[in-house]
Design a protein around this nucleic acid. Structure first.
Lengths: 139, 139
DNA sequence: ATCATTGCAAACACTTTGCATACGC
DNA sequence: GCGTATGCAAAGTGTTTGCAATGAT
């Protein structure tokens, strides 16, 4: 399992250092759309010398190579996701949780239009998100 | 025309100070999705004593009262829009321009689902955006 | 020995906060 | 004159940068 992730890094030309592997592993196992800070606070327990810089460097590298996607909904926080298949998001404005939303639930075409043109503009990325009050917070 | 905007502020319970009116007027006339800084740099010419704080205060007030919507695509900049009808956006990663995209072009339902529930979550806001290379930058 | 990775501290950009001043009714 | 709006400066937050130290082959 660890080796699968390691191989994924190698396949993309990223040398699989211990730190990078741990960060990618964390994102792979925690589908909670963590921020850079969340990831840092989780992994520092296992790697006490870890620095934020390494988190940022690694997330940037993984992002550039297409292994993770980044989600910006609030201006003050970027969240990261190892699920790179197209899907929407729902952000609860009360508790802050971020949920995944399948394309079929948002009446979108399942394809994300990436590689196509809209009004003449070439699309390389698509994001759909909702805000509101999540299921748990409605009571 | 100025009076229409003034009345819109009054109707929402916002006292129409000169500064607030100028900021709202700027957003109304410039559908370029400016940042707080863009607005500041534009209006400082007419009101030399203007401060950024007033820009932020005003944008917050207008946003809370539903007169402008804010768009977050890049983590480091919030853009503002006096067009509060639902529509998508396209951000050019080369030149940075932000274009409006009509709902019909993005194969979405025209309704924005606001007030409805998705997977049990109550939706209060929906945003759709694309990134890519815009028409002008493709040559 | 060489090159890449990591870590620290400082720099940065945008936004918010606290409080004093000025304005409008 | 009183309450609100404004402005300044400082603090805060998340991220990036420069460079030195460390690690791997």
């Amino acid at each position: 399992m660890d080796n699968d992730l390691k191989d994924a890094l190698i396949k993309k030309g990223i040398s699989p250092s211990y730190h990078r592997l741990k960060i990618y592993e964390y994102l792979w196992e925690n589908r909670t759309h963590p921020t850079a800070d969340d990831i840092y606070n989780a992994i520092i327990k296992q790697i006490p010398t870890l620095s934020k810089t390494t988190i940022y460097n690694t997330l940037k590298t993984l992002g550039e190579k297409g292994l993770v996607s980044s989600i910006t909904i609030e201006d003050n926080e970027v969240r990261y996701d190892a699920d790179i298949a197209f899907h929407g998001h729902f952000k609860c404005t009360r508790c802050g949780a971020l949920y995944d939303i399948d394309p079929e639930h948002i009446m979108l075409d399942k394809k994300n239009n990436v590689g196509k043109k809209i009004l003449g503009h070439l699309v390389t990325e698509k994001q759909v998100y909702y805000k509101g009050i999540c299921k748990k917070c409605q009571h």
